[in-house]
């Protein structure tokens, strides 16, 4: 078993590891749908009304919100891995991850409010 030993600055990598993979499974199921819709719009097989009917249905809104949380979580954890590997100045890591967290929250709020504002 994994003992509760503190390693490095993150102390324990298991939570990050788990959430990165858990969000990956959700994204693997949902992101192809988002891209399929985008390409359907691109090649003209989906017009604006049809797109809106899919997006502002309740299943559409809920799946989209789930997708956005999973995607932003996954992106944050992925960049954290890259920053921990390539940025060797610890103070800079903290600043970078703080900035990224703020950007992720702002994007998430914008996205979330957009999803739930359609049709109102």
């Amino acid at each position: 078993m994994v003992k509760n030993v503190r390693y490095g600055t993150a102390h324990n990598g298991l939570n990050d590891w788990f959430f990165q993979r858990f969000s990956a499974v959700l994204i693997a199921l949902l992101m192809p749908v988002a891209f399929a819709l985008l390409f359907a719009v691109f090649d003209g097989s989906l017009n604006q009304m049809q797109l809106l009917n899919l997006l502002d249905s309740y299943p559409g809104r809920i799946l989209h919100a789930l997708f956005l949380f999973a995607l932003l979580t996954h992106a944050y954890l992925g960049i954290k891995v890259i920053v921990e590997d390539y940025v060797h100045i610890v103070a800079l890591r903290i600043v970078l991850m703080g900035v990224l967290l703020v950007i992720a929250v702002v994007l998430g709020l914008w996205w979330f409010s957009m999803i739930w504002a359609w049709g109102s």
């Binding site: 988002a34 985008l38 719009v41 604006q48 797109l51 809106l52 997006l55 995607l71 932003l72 992106a75 992925g78 960049i79 890259i82 994007l107 914008w110 996205w111 957009m114 359609w118």
Partner: peptide, 19 residues
């Protein structure tokens, strides 16, 4: 992964304009 990260704001722009 980094390319996909950069796409998130673009996706949001597309989503807001397409709707």
């Amino acid at each position: 992964g980094f390319v996909l990260l950069l796409f998130i704001p673009v996706y949001l722009y597309l989503l807001s304009a397409l709707t």
